[in-house]
């Protein structure tokens, strides 16, 4: 399977009080558990990214819980109110517990 790799877009700088938009994308097939392998005819077991957590300076600020109805290469965009400089950590959790993370810093003037 393809290597699982996240991409995140966070503005490097923001004004205090500004509402910024954060976008995150990760390469993942999001196997629903319903499709069959064309070659073997066997069902491909469910394996999805079931959770995405965004935290700022160690505090969880936003969580998305994904079901199999979320598309392959799941995409998520959400707002955040810039109040101070700090670091975001983004975590994707796969069925079975594997985690993938990305971090971004933001400076607030």
């Amino acid at each position: 399977m393809a290597k699982i790799k996240p991409r995140v877009k966070v503005p490097k700088k923001a004004a205090a009080g500004e509402i910024i938009e954060i976008k995150a994308l990760i390469s993942h097939p999001m196997h629903t558990g319903r499709a069959k392998d064309k070659k073997t005819g066997k069902k491909i077991p469910r394996k999805i990214i079931n959770k995405f957590v965004a935290s700022f300076d160690g505090q969880d600020v936003f969580t998305a819980n994904f079901e199999p109805a979320v598309s392959a290469n799941p995409y998520i965009a959400f707002p955040f109110k810039a109040s101070k400089s700090g670091a975001f950590t983004f975590t994707w959790v796969e069925d079975g517990g594997a985690e993938f993370t990305a971090s971004k810093k933001m400076t607030v003037a």
Binding site: N65, S71, F78
Partner: peptide, 28 residues
């Protein structure tokens, strides 16, 4: 969604730190 094999698509937990309540994703 009422026409998929199961009704759930996604759920989101928000906090006041976000300053606004919105989100965007892509679904099957």
């Amino acid at each position: 969604a009422d026409g998929n094999p199961t009704p759930d698509v996604a759920s989101f937990n928000f906090t006041p730190a976000m300053g606004a309540c919105s989100a965007s994703t892509r679904m099957r």
